[in-house]
Amino acid sequence: MNNHLADLPAWAAVPAALLLLAGAGLTLIGTVGLLRFGSFYQRVHAPTLGSTLGIGCILLASMLIFSVLESRAILHELLITALMVVTTPITLMLLARAALYRDRSEGSDEVPPPPSGSTTVPKPGASDEAGV
């Protein structure tokens, strides 16, 4: 079994192994931060370590291994790279803004008050009809 990896030369296998280990290690460090940080606004920074550099390293290793094995450029991993680069900031911005909205509408002391003139945050207990 696993004959396909036996054809891989050492000059490709060693960088691929290092990239795989770096990617998984960075992801693990990110989730340790997710586990240990104190508040949500600190926690939202930690897993981005895995979703940018971690998955980037593993995709590079995958591209390297399959390109060398098939003797041509296998680049479809770039699809996942582009998807991650585009979507990670969008989702985390949406999530952080939702958390900020929830904390402000509960009158929490941990978050700064809304800037003056802002109409997007209702008073605590107001109905959910403000703004679009």
């Binding site: 795989l20 990617g23 998984a24 992801t27 990110g30 989730t31 997710l34 949500f40 926690r43 939202v44 897993p47 895995g50 979703s51 971690g54 998955i55 593993i58 995709l59 995958s62 991993e77 996942i80 991650m84 989702t91 985390l92 999530l95 939702a98 958390a99 929830r102």
Partner: peptide, 22 residues
């Protein structure tokens, strides 16, 4: 809180993607 759970779920998705790649 709920936003922590959603953040954990997002991390779980990214890590599952990497596991499938390996």
């Amino acid at each position: 809180r709920a936003q922590d759970r959603v953040l954990g779920l997002d991390t779980l998705y990214v890590t599952a993607t990497m596991l499938l790649l390996t």
